[in-house]
């Protein structure tokens, strides 16, 4: 249920939480997903500084490596430069601090996975959404110069 286009539920609308299974404590928790356009641009919130809200949507999977947690946004949003897309995000596994992002043309629609080939590490993720048909995209770091 929404009022003036805003959910009755207080944000964050989605989080990634790291839980210490020995103690049962939440070690860190971050709002995952850019603030949706209709929230950021809502006239009722004009003048307010709203921290990243995360995005409700259908559930997505994460990729966990030795040092990172990697997951994509589930909605398309507009970046400050005007480009539209969904971010693939990497968080420091120990702190939850965001350490890298890549703008994808559509939201993540399947869990990312990673593999190494010819000495280079790849991340492959399924994306689709809006007019963008499903596809796999593979990313790797550029060659060092």
């Amino acid at each position: 249920m929404t009022v003036q286009g805003l959910s009755l539920i207080k944000p964050p609308y989605a989080t990634i939480s790291a839980i210490n299974l020995d103690r049962g404590d939440i070690v860190w928790q971050v709002a995952h997903g850019e603030t949706p356009d209709q929230i950021r641009n809502n006239p009722a919130l004009k003048g307010l500084n709203i921290p990243r809200t995360g995005q409700s949507g259908y559930n997505i999977g994460t990729l966990v490596t030795k040092s990172l947690v990697i997951a994509g946004d589930s909605l398309i949003t507009t970046t400050p430069s005007g480009a539209r897309g969904a971010m693939l995000r990497a968080y420091d596994k120990s702190s939850g601090k965001e350490v890298g992002t890549v703008l994808m043309p559509a939201p993540q629609s399947g869990s990312p996975m990673t593999y190494m080939w010819n000495g280079k590490q790849y991340i492959v993720v399924a994306i689709s959404g809006g007019a963008y048909s499903g596809e796999y995209r593979a990313y790797r770091l550029p060659d060092e110069r």
């Binding site: 929404t2 959910s7 949706p36 356009d37 209709q38 929230i39 995005q55 409700s56 949507g57 259908y58 559930n59 589930s74 909605l75 398309i76 949003t77 539209r84 559509a106 939201p107 629609s109 959404g129 809006g130 007019a131």
Partner: peptide, 24 residues
């Protein structure tokens, strides 16, 4: 929406389709 299908109404749907066309 469902486990493997996106929502077709509400913010989750409109975020992905706004600025595109009905033809798309």
């Amino acid at each position: 929406g469902g486990e493997s299908a996106p929502p077709l109404a509400g913010p989750g749907f409109l975020s992905n389709w706004t600025s595109l066309t009905v033809g798309d």
